[in-house]
Design a protein around this nucleic acid. Sequence first.
DNA 1: TGACATTAGTATCGTTTAGATACTTATTCG
DNA 2: CGAATAAGTATCTAAACGATACTAATGTCA
Lengths: 234, 234
Amino acid sequence: MRDRGISSINPTRASSRRSSFSIDVILFTPRGKQLAALCVRADDPRARERWLLPSDFAASDEALETAARRIAKDACGVEPTWMEQVGAFGDGKRHPADVDLSVAFAAVVPADDAAAGRAERAWFGVSEPPALAPRQRAMLDAALAALRTRMDHAPIAFRLLPEMFTLSELQVMYELLLGKRLHKASFRRALQATSLVEATDEWRSEGRGRPAQFFRFSPRKRRGTGRGVRFDLL
Amino acid sequence: MRDRGISSINPTRASSRRSSFSIDVILFTPRGKQLAALCVRADDPRARERWLLPSDFAASDEALETAARRIAKDACGVEPTWMEQVGAFGDGKRHPADVDLSVAFAAVVPADDAAAGRAERAWFGVSEPPALAPRQRAMLDAALAALRTRMDHAPIAFRLLPEMFTLSELQVMYELLLGKRLHKASFRRALQATSLVEATDEWRSEGRGRPAQFFRFSPRKRRGTGRGVRFDLL
DNA sequence: TGACATTAGTATCGTTTAGATACTTATTCG
DNA sequence: CGAATAAGTATCTAAACGATACTAATGTCA
């Protein structure tokens, strides 16, 4: 069994029984000042689109998330450090594999792990995605949106950083994930208010400028009362 | 073709080809001071759970959302006024229909429309749900959570009210959907700030107390800059 | 060595926002 | 008429946010 599950539409895979729905993983990694998503080359040169999302079928009795982790690891070599389901996509939009339904998962891997890339795959900045089949394009867009909306409930940024990090590194990661600049003082105030990080006694040595203190993720939390509503419609 | 699609696991349905995944609809309606979800009686008396979520299979080439609307209408008689996909559920948790995968949709119908109930179905307050199969129970919980988190992006409360409504009615609807009390002055300030409603020249006549002005939904909007982050983890 | 660039981190200020409280207004009921 | 009831407003305080400017600690380079 060689090269199993690398390509999106390659039916030679681990499971004995092929389910009628695919699992597609949108794998993000920080690249430069932007997020990048992993795509794999289409085997079939007649395919209209030359790039595909990592995709496969779930084995019998294989949990959706387990399958998604396997697909992600097959695609980039390491397990993602965060993953969450985005939703199910069907609705006539064409999919490389000939399936009625595809379940999309958004996942992230740290930048260092993402570096190990073979030839048949490539990272694309999210602002310049390659031509994808319509359904996969919809899944990519939805995954990015889901990633950004879930950043305030899941420790996604922390899963992209080493265990110890400086507050500037954390802010840069937030900015990269959200795709917008953040205010330094407000960012640190909000951090302190939620007690999300704790200071260590280590300091960064390298580089110019004043040394930065290292922090670590420490999610002890108090709940907000939450008496308000947010109207963000349209 | 009689009684088609009423029961969750009844395979006598409209589509010619049975897909391998089910579509399950969690249909909410305001009932008293609480949200209620619609369940249907299990046909099979040997079933461990006596209640099921409205569920069916998608026809070939039937869009997911179209199928979900059909299932909702079959279950309660009218089309839901708002609906959104919650996600795909599998993962070994047992489902009444013997399918690997189920796609959950959250939907709402106004209280008046929901009144027309036949014997084989019932509304259950979300705080006292009936015994459901594990996967359907998970879908119900997820649907309620999704409904509440999406309230600030979708006009769900407005879809549960008549075209003209008072601000007190709107606030009560928000409180019912969110499951918590809101502050009157802040609620109205936030409404005014977003220009979500516009006043009409009609006033409520019935009832005691000072008459209330009627408003209508008018979603002209300006975008917020959104320079901040929200840390709500854990 | 000493000015300068660079990066980290803090202080201060004005503005906005949210919740609490209490008030005014307009109607029904008795 | 006066009490009850509900709608709607005003005012105050505290917290949050963004801007700006400041201090602090390091490396670079003349």
